[in-house]
């Protein structure tokens, strides 16, 4: 190896050995290497007699009777993957005229429902698609 090349390499590696590990250390020093637990804590506010429960990876639906009346709790576990979401009761296999409400955030949503409602549907009016049928 030519002497000039050996000298050049020596200087370069001297600098690299000082600079690179130092910079590496200071860049990661404050980082958090733990995997964040992304599953949300499911909020549940049920006070009453549970009639039926339906569970899947995306939603948990609980129909129950409370002092206020019959309630439907819809827990959105994973972020919604729809352009919009409206909750409807299903009567005789069809979506009812009047909707129960709009769902957009994760977490618990509770609605007062008539006693006759046993099936429900989450519907996306923007894309005109059924998101999920909730049958207990």
């Amino acid at each position: 190896m030519a002497s000039g090349l050996l000298k050049a390499h020596t200087y370069i590696w001297f600098v690299l050995l000082l600079a690179v590990p130092t910079l590496m250390f200071f860049s990661v020093r404050n980082l958090n290497f733990n995997e964040r637990n992304n599953t949300p804590v499911e909020e549940s506010e049920i006070v009453g007699d549970i009639i039926a429960v339906d569970e899947n990876p995306q939603f948990r639906t609980v129909l129950y009777d409370s002092p206020r009346g019959r309630l439907l709790e819809l827990v959105v576990k994973q972020p919604l993957q729809s352009a919009s979401a409206i909750l409807y009761p299903v009567v005789d296999g069809e979506r009812a005229e009047k909707s129960l409400g709009q769902i957009s955030t994760q977490g618990s949503h509770t609605f007062l429902v008539e006693d006759r409602f046993e099936q429900f549907q989450l519907f996306d009016p923007i894309k005109n698609e059924i998101i999920i049928e909730i049958e207990f």
Binding site: P79, S82, S84, A85, S104, I126
Partner: peptide, 9 residues
């Protein structure tokens, strides 16, 4: 073209 996630569109 729609863009959506977590209730926002």
């Amino acid at each position: 073209n729609l863009i959506y996630y977590n209730g926002k569109t």
